[in-house]
Design a protein around this nucleic acid. Structure first.
Length: 677
RNA sequence: GGCGAGGUAGCUCAGCUGGUUAGAGCGCAUGAUUCAUAAUCAUGAGGCCGGCGGUUCAAGUCCGCCUCUCGCUACCA
């Protein structure tokens, strides 16, 4: 790797509409913080920036729901998250926000530069507009009837009943949630970043020059590039965001994905007048720490923006992690299936390092991983307490017991002593190699192994026996044990900063830089150490059970809330019903439509004819088992071509909450063609 | 369906460019030990490395096909 003069680390900007949870930490902030502490400890020139991402539609929705302003929403979560990060020891050099004046200016300028250079394309599209509120509507601000399942409260981007992704224009009877008015389609002009124009560059840059990226990152990028890049709108019709800084753009703001990554730049700008050195000098190594949901933005879109602007460097690596699950289930903010950082900090005061340790030891580096409270407890009790804490405590207690807390002299060393001393530097080397390759789990394991070496050393040399016969030998053994402890303080420091500090206090040492790691003489003979103090406490079953109960309660509460069935629809006239020609029919043939997941092509005997119907049931029924199935069918539905096959009618099915389908099945005696009324 | 990432001991995971009897931690069993927060140390049991086929003197590692999990994407009248 090139010899870089300085580092710029960015951690994904948390969206300011909710608190931080374990998934965020394990995937992004813990590894990023470890890496930045490691670099700082090596006296590297490094800046570590982050901040709140505070624009976008979801924040305006949340504000409306709670009857407060968008600014109130982002203020609340900005400060909550900033404080939570600080308490966990995530030491950003700056935690900025995208509503700051510096960011407004930076993002506007960035847009303006690209605009002036002709890097955008313009396009006029039809968007829903609320004539009463006289503004354009984000998809989320439109509700209507889902064309798929008939749910009357579907949103313009998605129907939450059947889970289908929608376009606002798909909705039947659309309504504005702002005023209740019927929205009208109106032309609106937007600017687009033509990613397709950058395809050649991206292909070469990523696929040829960045083959060292992690497989999950590289593969994801390849997938995107190969499937063809498309222009992306960089502006939206919204009143919450950074105004598009060109004439004729009233009521338009920068699309949140465009302004958010620029937040890294503006944060740096707020931090230091030297910011350009970090963003525009090829001797800077730029690294983006993110979760896998952000790969496309950081590896394709943001680099395309930076490249278009022209004066910025591009990321050298994007060590994205996968996701963390919780007790076997996906984390879900909306289902409240999560462990929130601010709640953890309140429930487990002074256990920041335990969480840091567990999340790093079990980080989802190569694949999704599971966080369980039981594992949390086991790692604390079996590793932090039993291996690290216990070893240090043994060394300290023995030193106090035999030598009144004064570091004894290291006398003549035998082969075994020498091999243990040599381990210091070997361990340091392994840890460095692992960290340099973003292998945090492995690095942490190596530090812990050094503590294991210490426990073994004491067990093998048995100073508590030797003290009766050979005090000189005991002095050497304890000196080495204390040197090992001092090394642990240095090597654990990036991972467990609170504990490292505590240990240094006990050893009466300053926080030593990384370069001292591996050394055999960090503590001089005659140096007085402080009273022994336990580094970690055992976590009892009750505490774990409490957390599990909390999760179960949340789940039960959530299930109860979700059991509410869709409200009944508006009344209709009898005539409306009689328009529907529903008949009894029997499936004669069934065959899965090739190249689809859900579609089944059916031939049904309706009594009056035999017709083809395409139905989205293939996920729940096998073709062979459908033959002979009695069904209800809506006959007089306008035929429609699906995947090139004309579907003449609709099979009636009921749908459970989890999406399972059941036929509305007539009794066996009902004959084909008989009417349902 | 397409693309991407995974599928290695009961659990969580390492195994780089193919090369001796497949590794670690936890858990389990047995023994040792008592300086230490019943912590520590040693030994051991436990694996058709998702399945099938192929390339090779040699495959967990390379190539096909299949299967399961996760993500993106298409489809859903």
């Amino acid at each position: 790797m090139k010899d870089y003069k300085r580092y710029l680390l960015t951690a994904a900007l948390p969206y300011a509409n909710g608190p931080i949870h374990l998934g965020h930490l394990a995937g992004v902030y813990v590894p990023a913080d470890i890496y930045s502490r490691y670099l700082r400890s090596k006296k590297t020139d490094v800046i570590f920036v982050c901040g709140s991402d505070e624009h976008g539609v979801p924040i305006t929705i949340k504000a409306r729901q709670e009857g407060i302003s968008p600014q109130d929403v982002v203020d609340k979560y900005h400060y909550l998250n900033k404080e939570s990060f600080e308490k966990l020891g995530i030491a950003f050099d700056i935690y900025a926000r995208t509503t700051s004046p510096v960011h407004y200016e930076t993002a506007s300028e960035f847009f303006k530069t690209l605009y002036d250079k002709g890097e955008f394309t313009e396009n006029t599209t039809q968007q829903y507009f609320d004539p009463e509120a006289s503004q354009f509507l984000a998809d989320r601000y439109i509700t209507g009837t889902c064309p798929h399942c008939g749910n009357e409260h579907a949103y313009g981007d998605q129907c939450e009943n059947c889970g289908t992704t929608l376009n606002a224009t798909d909705l039947i009877n659309p309504k504005s949630t702002l005023s209740g008015a019927v929205p009208i389609l109106k032309e609106t002009k937007h600017w687009f970043l033509p990613l397709d124009k950058h395809e050649a560059f991206l292909r070469k840059w990523i696929l040829e020059e960045n083959t060292h990226w992690k497989p999950n990152v590289y593969g994801q990028c390849k997938s995107w590039i190969d499937s063809g890049l498309q222009a992306r709108a960089v502006s939206r019709d919204l009143d919450w965001g950074i105004p598009v800084p060109v004439e004729g753009a009233e009521g338009k703001v920068l699309y949140v994905w465009f302004d958010a990554p620029i937040g890294y730049i503006s944060a740096t700008k707020e931090l230091t007048p030297d910011w350009e050195k970090y963003w525009k000098d090829e001797d800077t190594r730029l690294l983006h720490f993110i979760g896998k949901d952000n790969i496309v933005f950081h590896c394709i879109i943001f680099p395309a923006m930076l490249k278009s602007e022209g004066s910025y460097i591009l990321p050298e690596n994007v060590p994205a992690n996968e996701f963390l699950n919780l007790e076997g289930e996906k984390l879900s903010t909306s289902k409240n299936w999560a462990v929130w950082l601010h709640e953890y900090l309140a429930d487990f005061p002074d256990k920041q390092d335990v969480l840091r340790y567990v999340l790093c030891a079990n980080a989802p580096e190569a694949k999704d991983n599971d966080f369980t409270w039981k594992d949390f407890q086991a790692r604390n009790n079996n590793e932090l307490v039993a291996v690290f804490g216990n070893f240090v405590n043994r060394a300290l207690v023995l030193t106090h017991k035999y030598f009144d807390g004064v570091v004894p002299v290291m006398g003549e060393t035998d082969e075994y002593d020498k091999s243990v001393l040599a381990e210091f530097a070997i361990a340091k080397d392994k840890i460095e190699k692992a960290l340099d390759n973003f292998r945090f789990r492995e690095a942490l394991k190596e530090v812990m192994n050094l503590a294991r070496t210490g426990n073994k050393y004491l067990a093998d040399t048995e100073p508590w026996k030797l003290i009766k016969t050979d005090e000189t030998r005991v002095k050497t053994i304890l000196n080495i044990s204390l040197q090992l402890s001092a090394n642990l303080a240095i090597l654990f420091n990036p991972f467990l900063p609170f504990t490292a500090k505590k240990l240094n206090n006990i050893l009466q040492l300053e926080n030593l830089d990384w370069e001292f790691g591996g050394k055999e003489n960090l503590l001089l003979a005659g140096h007085k150490i402080a009273r022994a103090e336990l580094l970690f406490a055992i976590i009892e079953d009750e505490e774990i059970e409490k957390q599990l109960q909390k999760l179960r309660d949340n789940k039960a509460k959530n299930d109860a809330e979700n059991q509410t069935l869709a409200p009944s629809k508006e009344k209709i006239e009898f005539e409306d019903f009689t328009k529907l020609d529903i008949r009894v029919a029997t499936i004669l043939e069934a065959e899965k439509v090739p190249k689809t997941k859900k579609l089944m092509k059916l031939l049904v005997d309706t009594g009056i004819d035999k017709r083809t119907v395409v139905s989205g049931i293939a996920e729940y029924f096998e073709a062979e088992k459908l033959i002979g199935q009695k069904v209800s069918i809506l006959l007089n539905l306008e035929p429609r071509k699906i995947k090139g096959i004309e579907s003449q009618g609709m099979i009636l099915l009921s749908e459970e909450k989890d999406g399972t389908l059941h036929f509305v099945e007539p009794s066996k005696q009902a004959s084909n063609g008989s009417q349902v009324n």
